[in-house]
């Protein structure tokens, strides 16, 4: 089996400050990887470099493209990279309003990616949107409402539907459950788990919530000061952490 996504020697500095340094990993189809670390550890920098929102100073971000196989996304032309981020990639923002068009109806939000890749049949676009709203547990009757009329949890679910409608193979998620009530988080986690399983998605999830990665991620990468200090199977890293920082992180979680 070949990896879907490979990161090699990825580094990003902000002046003399290290954003992230020499990150390497392979992600295989169907794998979900968590990246944890506290604020300022470089996890968001890393995510944005991988997703093409930031240009790294060094390294490669390889993706197994449908047409040409393994390709460095940093070497791609901008149209090619933007096409990739509309089709095979998806990005779920922490704040739904960063990932949604707030002045466009729920149906239009879900349909946008379809129309962007050439869908031109209103009825079919609408049927697909209804199907996806149902999959993220939003009632069909809300299809013409704007996201501003939705609760935080619904907005987040809408953002997920909008991203997954084109059947991407790799999803980047930035604190997908951050800022949500605990009960809403649980529902979202369950939804993400079943979508990942049903669609065979690969995902990279950045979070500081260890409970989230335990439930969602197969693998875990722990970051501190821009460096990856430990990585491995999620439950092994959490239950038998090897690095001092990870031990501190795990022991700092309040037990419920």
């Amino acid at each position: 089996m070949t990896p879907l996504f490979q990161v090699k020697g990825l580094s990003k500095n902000y002046g003399t400050h290290i954003g992230c340094r020499d990150v390497n990993f392979d992600l295989y189809p169907g794998e979900v990887m968590g990246i944890v670390g506290e604020s300022g550890s470089g996890k968001s920098t890393l995510l944005n470099c991988m997703a093409g929102h930031l240009t790294p100073d060094a390294g490669q971000v390889m993706f197994d493209t449908r047409a040409e196989g393994m390709k460095d996304t940093l070497e791609m032309s901008e149209p090619e990279r933007r096409m990739l981020s509309r089709t095979d990639w998806a990005f779920v923002h922490q704040h739904a309003r960063d990932g949604l068009r707030m002045n466009v109806s729920a149906g239009g939000n879900v349909g946008e990616r379809l129309m962007a890749v050439g869908a031109r049949h209103y009825g079919e676009i609408r049927d697909t949107a209804i199907d996806w709203l149902d999959r993220v547990e939003i009632k069909e009757s809300r299809i013409d409402d704007r996201p501003s009329a939705f609760s935080g949890g619904m907005q987040q679910r809408l953002q997920i539907a909008r991203n997954l409608v084109t059947g991407p193979r790799l999803v980047f998620m930035d604190e997908p459950t951050g800022g949500l009530d605990v009960s809403v988080q649980a529902r979202l986690l369950d939804l993400l788990r079943s979508l990942v399983r049903e669609m065979g998605l690969s995902a990279i999830i950045v979070t500081h919530d260890l409970a989230v990665v335990r439930l969602l991620a197969d693998r875990l990468m722990v970051m501190k000061d821009g460096h990856v200090v430990e990585s491995g199977l999620t439950d092994q890293v959490l239950d038998d952490p090897q690095h001092g920082y990870t031990q501190l992180l795990v022991s700092s979680v309040l037990q419920v």
Binding site: R82, R86, R101, V104, S105, G107, G108, G111, E112, R113, L114, M115, A116, V117, R120, Y122, I125, R126, I143, D144
Partner: peptide
């Protein structure tokens, strides 16, 4: 990238 233009028309029909 003109998908957005059709979103406007979609909103009209909706």
């Amino acid at each position: 990238e003109y998908g957005l233009m059709h979103v406007k028309l979609y909103e009209d029909i909706a």
